[in-house]
Design a protein around this nucleic acid. Structure first.
Lengths: 286, 286
DNA sequence: ATGCCTTACGTTATACGTAATTATT
DNA sequence: AATAATTACGTATAACGTAAGGCAT
């Protein structure tokens, strides 16, 4: 058998062309590499190089060997990555959501239910979520509507309700206690964080005459909110998670249309690791 | 990077189930193997085993790793074989022939033309010869007829003529000086070595009423020749190569039909290594 | 009691780097 | 002179085996 470091040495020589350059790259001395090449020929019992007194290069057999060696090195790297990835997948619960709201609160919940697990979360569109659930990229996905798929559990998770945030001197403040409808606020210009998943579709439908200015950075958004008289959005969930409440310059008004409240659903493959989470959903929904 | 011997150790443990058995198989001590498994986990930074105080077994990640390790080991074995095979093919001239006659004399010729090369010869049917020439299994093939194939050289090699060998008291001895025809000898029973390539087809056609007893072993054939009154065959080539001449109990008679003489042709891809052989053929045919 | 794994320890073997040598441009 | 490869030599690392210990069947 040939040890991997010999194959690496051969591949490096193939790549760099001289022993000195390859040795430099491998962080070993020239003589060490020279010996390794010799040992390779001994083990294979085959001549791999054409040598003159002060030069050495691969012959046809050597080129073949170097290419095959590179293949093996690539295989081994893939193996290492696969094993590490598989191991980490055993210690990770991956969650994808159609909106940022649910994944604002779920990590702390999951950390309590699974103290030894890593939790990863991201927002994605429905198509990618469903595909990711199928191919194990996500253990749990969160959609804004229920869905019946064979062998997939679907349980209600939580609701999220949309609020409009207005400057405290804005005319809309008269709705402060009654709440507003989408119709009341349509036609304004809104500030909003860049991507809010399913809310984007709801707003596009319910606020057809409004303009939405997207801001990718939360800090900039907050600064703009304070500096301008533009409207913006919040949800009950975001209010719980982000310390933006108690801003004396802004008033939060709930939107009372039914479309402003979304019921989210968790979908997951039947997997005994997820039983604690399923139990939690079932009990918390009673 | 992970050295091959660690992968071998893992694969052996996967195969044998206990460290002791695997260590035995690897010809190392149990403790050494135990340490190797630990190092593997360190390098991968992943847990591969479930351990109790006196037992150890692969977990799911370990099984995956062991299977991938086996793949790499197989790749490396294939690589070694391919490199060795390629090297040997550079130092070998492989010849296939439709009849045994030509390859009785060609090795000594090739050894003279190519003193540093190995020469391998075998008899095969035309279909396999042509396929083998195409896929480089043969450098040279010898057929009983010329053939025009693009990029393939086709040159006459030598002729071979069939003789019948009869007991010295056989009635056919009257043809001793004139030669016989196939018709003269048809209807007899013949002894023959098991496979003689193209001669089999010629005999089947020209001696439709004869029976041929095949003997796979040359020694047995010679013994039977002496002990029985059966006829047998020889050719001018076999007579030059095998010391069966001067047997006082047998008489050799040439067969005079044109079908009893075959002109052989060498076919080979254009390859500069074969130039000396081509030159030899061209000059010896003048 | 036997089999299996791990830890500890001393040794050996293998692979390395430095230095010197030779050859080429 | 500078660059490149090989050879020779002493050293250091790392892998091994033996021995000892603990635990389960």
């Amino acid at each position: 058998m040939i040890e991997i470091h010999l194959l690496e040495a051969l591949a490096a020589f193939y790549q760099f062309g001289t022993l000195s350059a390859a040795a430099m790259h491998l962080h070993i001395s020239q003589p060490a590499l020279s010996r390794s090449m010799k040992r390779l020929e001994e083990i294979l019992n085959v001549s791999l190089f054409t040598r003159t007194k002060n030069s050495i290069s691969l012959n046809d057999t050597g080129i073949l060997a170097a290419q095959l060696a590179q293949d093996i090195l690539n295989s081994e790297n893939r193996m290492i990555q696969m094993v590490r990835y598989y191991d980490s997948s055993l210690h990770t619960i991956s969650i994808g959501s159609e909106a940022p709201g649910p994944i604002m609160e779920i990590p702390s919940l999951m950390t309590q239910l699974y103290p030894d697990m890593s939790i990863t979360c991201e927002t994605e569109n429905e198509e990618n979520l469903l595909q990711g659930l199928e191919n194990q990229k996500y253990n749990i996905i969160i959609l804004s509507h229920p869905m019946d798929i064979p062998n997939i559990e679907c349980l209600p998770y939580s609701t999220e309700s949309l609020y409009v945030s207005i400057p405290s001197d804005h005319p809309l403040k008269k709705f402060k206690d009654t709440g507003v409808t989408f119709e009341d606020i349509d036609g304004n210009t809104f500030l909003q964080i860049s991507y809010v998943g399913v809310w984007d579709e709801i707003k596009k439908k319910m606020l057809p005459n409004s303009k939405i200015l997207r801001q990718s950075d939360r800090e900039s958004l907050n600064a703009l909110e304070n500096a301008s008289s533009l409207l913006s959005f919040a949800t009950d969930v975001s209010l719980r998670s982000i310390r933006e409440r108690n801003n004396p310059n802004r008033i939060l008004i709930p939107i009372i249309d039914p479309e402003a409240t979304v019921q989210f659903y968790c979908l997951m493959k039947k997997d005994k690791r997820l039983n604690p989470f399923i139990q939690y959903l079932q009990t918390s929904n009673k």
